[in-house]
Simulated assay, not measured.
Amino acid sequence: MIWNCPLCQQPLTPANNGLRCASQHHFDRAKEGYINLLPVQHKRSKQPGDSAEMMQARRDFLDAGFYQPLQQAVTTLLSNNLPQQKLTILDIGCGEGYYTAAIAKRFADREQREVIGLDVAKVAIRAAAKRYADVAFCVASSHRLPFADASLDAVVRIYAPCKASELTRVLKPGGIMLTVTPGPRHLIQFKSLIYSEVQLHAAEAELLPGMTLQQESQLAYEMRLDGKSATTLLQMTPFAWRAKPAVWEHLAEQGEFSCETDFMLRLWRRD
């Protein structure tokens, strides 16, 4: 089994519509189909992760197709670099499952594949599990991944934080990790509305001990948003906390708001 108990790190096996370890820690499967592997003592707040409003804003924006080029780029990179027929792929910080579901669809013809979506926000995982039945979703911490050592063929990390040591621990030797981070000019038009001095995102790759960077590419394109889509996108971003009411009003009134995307995609391989 690939699942580990988040309390004692022993293997988890199916039991009574859930998972149980040898120490008798039991984790029920919710009616929506996901497993909650985030013990109370590992929570940093009562309801960690995105709120229901933030989750719904993200789902509305993604469903409109504005980030479909990124979704396509992610699934293509994975498909081109995972030739094996038996696969286990983890999407860290999966939110409501937009990219996770696309990955599962892209690999649907493989002989044996398991695609897992993990997020700390239960409201997002509940929504994802209700919508995408062919993905195994779990509520868990990205800093304490509930998986056995060297059990995953690939990890996808789109903006999500995670300890580098955890990534190298759960990936098989030769396994791959795909990261997506903001490029220098990502959403720069939002920044210009919020900050008096606009700074570009750093473009340098992070340091990941135990992994080798094998491929790097940049995806950038312009979006033309109406007022509702522009405010929805702002709600999805960390900029939302800094935006004054005047910024929200300005965006809502726009008939068309042009905004740049700029993504850095990096493919790493476990040494």
Rank of each mutant, 00 (worst) to 15 (best):
W3R: 02
Q9Y: 06
T13N: 07
A15H: 15
N17H: 15
G18L: 09
L19V: 05
H25W: 08
F27P: 07
A30T: 08
G33K: 12
I35H: 14
Q41E: 13
G49T: 10
D60S: 11
A64C: 10
Q68G: 03
P69W: 12
L70C: 01
Q71W: 01
Q71K: 11
V74L: 11
T75Y: 11
T76I: 07
S79V: 04
T88C: 14
L90H: 03
L90F: 00
D91H: 02
G93S: 13
C94Q: 12
G95H: 00
T100R: 10
A101C: 05
A108K: 14
R110D: 05
Q112K: 15
R113H: 09
E114V: 11
V123F: 01
F137A: 00
V139L: 11
V139D: 11
F147V: 06
A148N: 06
A148T: 10
A150S: 13
L152Q: 00
L152W: 08
V156N: 07
A160N: 09
S165G: 06
L167H: 05
T168H: 08
V180K: 02
H186Y: 12
L187G: 00
L187W: 00
I188D: 02
I194E: 06
E197A: 13
E197P: 03
V198G: 01
H201C: 04
A203N: 06
Q214Y: 10
Q215C: 00
Q218I: 12
E222W: 11
M223T: 03
L225T: 06
L225E: 04
T231E: 07
L234R: 06
P238H: 13
R242W: 12
V247I: 15
L251D: 01
A252P: 03
E253Y: 02
G255F: 04
R266F: 08
